[in-house]
């Protein structure tokens, strides 16, 4: 309280709030949800739900091409999406063909296979239910070629087996053999190239996941050329929620994106709250100042 002017005290205190109070709030906004593993239920937005519904509607044994078009720096955002999509595809008994347009994607495929498919779905067989086609250079040029002939580029899988010795590759001729293309990452090359050089000319549905930064640039393709899109950690959390809703057994599995959303939401509420408070006190302060001016009082 300001002893000189008790009437203004409250608003002045709030208006001149110490930054440490804000820091404290932010700290608690993150610590408490992390400790309590608090999370909000994320309702899937239509753009995310569309991806979920598409996978849900694919009959057993459908072929899904998953392109890992990202690098280590965007793993925190993109990996939760991949994990959720792989779980969903495994659950639906879809055939997963994993490839990469980015050189960094190669290792990420192996890691995802180990962490999700081999660990959680041990009955899935490599070469029958899923395959790692590895990284091939060529960006959109690669898409161009495999649109007409897949095996021209992929003569072996990432493990070095002859491509025709991989059972699930026998009836693959080109991109049109797939029922859905998922491109994960959102950078270049990525979703845009898949849409323009693969999905559009081949009339194959394309969906994908992108980092929060690149997602807005892909919005213009939705919904005509792009079936659906997971944008950033929020998109991943929405997909995880949709998956848990459809298959409650996944509740016990890790869901890093949902976990991340709890502290995110609370921290955002805190910041928004402080902005509102700041503006209210600002306007009240200005009103009073104007009033004092009229009364000929001291201008603070």
């Amino acid at each position: 309280m300001n002893p000189d002017n008790p009437k203004m005290g409250f608003f002045e205190t709030i208006a001149n709030i110490d930054r440490r109070v804000i820091f404290l709030f932010i700290g608690f906004a993150v610590i408490i949800p992390v400790l309590l593993s608090f999370s909000c239920t994320e309702e899937a937005t239509p753009i995310v739900q569309a991806v979920y519904d598409e996978i849900e509607s694919l009959p057993e044994g459908s072929k899904v091409l998953i392109s890992f078009d990202y690098g280590p720096s965007t793993v925190p955002e993109v990996q939760p999406m991949i994990d959720a999509l792989l779980r969903h595809s495994c659950e639906k008994n879809l055939k997963m063909y994993m490839m990469a347009l980015w050189g960094t994607g190669h290792n990420l495929i192996s890691e995802s296979m180990q962490d999700i498919i081999e660990k959680e779905f041990p009955h899935k067989i490599y070469g029958v239910d899923y395959v790692n086609l590895g990284y091939k250079a060529g960006n959109q040029g690669l898409i161009n070629v495999i649109l007409t002939d897949m095996k021209k580029m992929y003569t072996t899988d990432a493990r070095g087996s002859e491509i025709d010795a991989v059972p699930m590759m026998v009836d693959i001729r080109n991109l049109k053999s797939f029922d859905l293309i998922l491109s994960m990452g959102g950078g270049f090359p990525g979703i845009k190239e898949w849409v323009l050089f693969g999905g559009d000319p081949g009339n194959i549905p394309v969906a994908g996941g992108a980092t929060a930064v690149s997602a807005p640039l892909l919005y213009p393709y939705y919904p005509r050329q792009l079936l659906g899109l997971l944008g950033g950690i929020k998109g991943a959390a929405e997909y995880e929620s949709a998956l848990i809703k459809g298959y409650p057994k996944f509740k016990t599995h890790s869901h890093p994106a949902i976990d991340m959303m709890g502290p995110q939401t609370v921290a955002h509420i805190v910041i928004v709250f402080f902005i509102v408070i700041g503006n209210i006190t600002f306007f009240i302060g200005r009103k009073r100042e104007e009033g004092e001016k009229r009364e000929g009082g001291v201008i603070k």
Binding site: F23, V270, F274
Partner: peptide
């Protein structure tokens, strides 16, 4: 923390 205090 700083993004919050800057916003405020």
């Amino acid at each position: 923390f700083y993004i919050a205090s800057a916003a405020y």
